[in-house]
């Protein structure tokens, strides 16, 4: 299946929107008004956009602590995210959950969670329910290379394979878990996607910074899941630019080199695709500029609305526990 011009432009715009928002948020975060530990996805937009663009509205996704891009790519409202970071009642979790608990039932973002690996099983559960109902819906579990080490990852793959549930596992391998490289966490000589095969899952590794490749691979994967053949595993190789949690750069922390970060920045998924589209004459500089302006306006507006909207009332502290 080829990708139409419309599709490729929409992939680019989707990534650009996430990048612009996160860069703005990272800047504003330093004003100390967003009091919630925040894991930025800057540099990793292609997996989120590539995967979610190949889903239907009725499909559902789950994510972990680094969930902004997934939420936005699946259609979560921008104000819901911005409001959540500012701890406002307009936030998608009404200011209760913070950056790591994004949710938007309307667009199929069921839950994100800061406990590593937690939602992998939950995605399997939703997929199981879909298969019990003979529904065509698919559930996606987004997680990082770090979550693969948790027992729940293996238990979930085993169950999903056994019951042939329509779940797509998407591992965003950004090479690090906090400050620990893959080499000190997982045995050499076998890739993450290869391990899924031990549970009889079809699995593929894609360039996670190539949004078109991710999109294509996901279309095939989702087709597999929808047709009742069971789960599918995708590993996207990508890279986190900023520090693990927080808005800053961490060149000097010592766990990775500046050269490595720059090498990956050169492979920026947005730069790469926009250059290609310009070269191929599929879009123009003017169009890109206009997109950016529109997006910046949307972001500025969301920030103004979020900041001028009320905090949850302290009287309602207990509300919602039961």
């Amino acid at each position: 299946m080829g990708i139409s011009k419309e599709e490729i432009l929409s992939l680019l715009r989707g990534m650009l929107r996430i990048r612009c928002l996160e860069e703005t948020l990272a800047e504003r975060y330093q004003e100390q008004e967003m009091q919630t530990p925040t894991h930025f996805s800057i540099g990793q937009e292609a997996t989120a956009v590539g995967v979610c663009s190949a889903l239907e509205q009725q499909d559902v996704i789950y994510s972990g602590h680094r969930c902004h891009a997934h939420y936005l790519a699946k259609g979560g409202p921008l104000l819901g995210l911005v409001g959540e970071l500012y701890g406002r009642e307009v936030g998608c979790a009404r200011g209760r959950g913070g950056s790591v608990h994004l949710t938007d039932a309307g667009s199929g973002v069921i839950a994100s969670s800061a406990i590593l690996g937690q939602t992998i099983a939950v995605a399997v559960g939703s997929a199981w329910a879909f298969s019990l109902d003979h529904s065509r819906r698919v559930a996606v579990a987004f997680f990082g290379d770090g979550a693969v080490e948790e027992g729940i990852f293996h238990e979930s793959l085993n169950f999903a394979a056994l019951h042939k549930v329509p779940v797509l596992f998407v591992c965003e391998n950004n090479l690090y878990s906090t400050h620990s490289s893959l080499a000190v966490r997982q045995p050499a000589g076998i890739q993450i996607y290869e391990r899924a095969r031990a549970y009889s899952l079809p699995s593929r590794q894609v360039d996670g910074n190539d949004v078109a490749a991710v999109f294509q691979a996901t279309r095939e994967a989702v087709e597999w899941c929808r047709s009742g053949r069971g789960p599918y595993f995708l590993e996207g190789l990508t890279y986190r630019w900023r520090e693990h949690v927080g808005p800053l750069w961490d060149y000097d922390a010592g766990y990775r080199t500046k050269a490595e970060v720059e090498e990956w920045m050169a492979r920026c998924p947005i730069k790469r695709l926009s250059e290609q589209l310009l070269r191929d004459g599929l879009c123009s500089e003017g169009e890109l500029r206009r997109w950016r302006e529109e997006i910046q306006q949307e972001i500025a507006h969301a920030i103004v609305v979020a900041k001028s909207s009320p905090f949850p009332s302290v009287q309602c502290l207990l509300e919602g526990t039961y």
């Binding site: 009091q35 919630t36 959540e84 701890g87 406002r88 936030g91 979790a93 200011g95 209760r96 959950g97 913070g98 608990h101 905090f311 949850p312 302290v314 502290l317 207990l318 919602g320 526990t321």
Partner: peptide, 16 residues
């Protein structure tokens, strides 16, 4: 603690 999970929003967290 009040009988609810820890909230994030600053005024709620302060009251918590």
């Amino acid at each position: 603690l009040p009988d609810c999970p820890a909230p994030v929003s600053e005024p709620l967290e302060k009251a918590f």
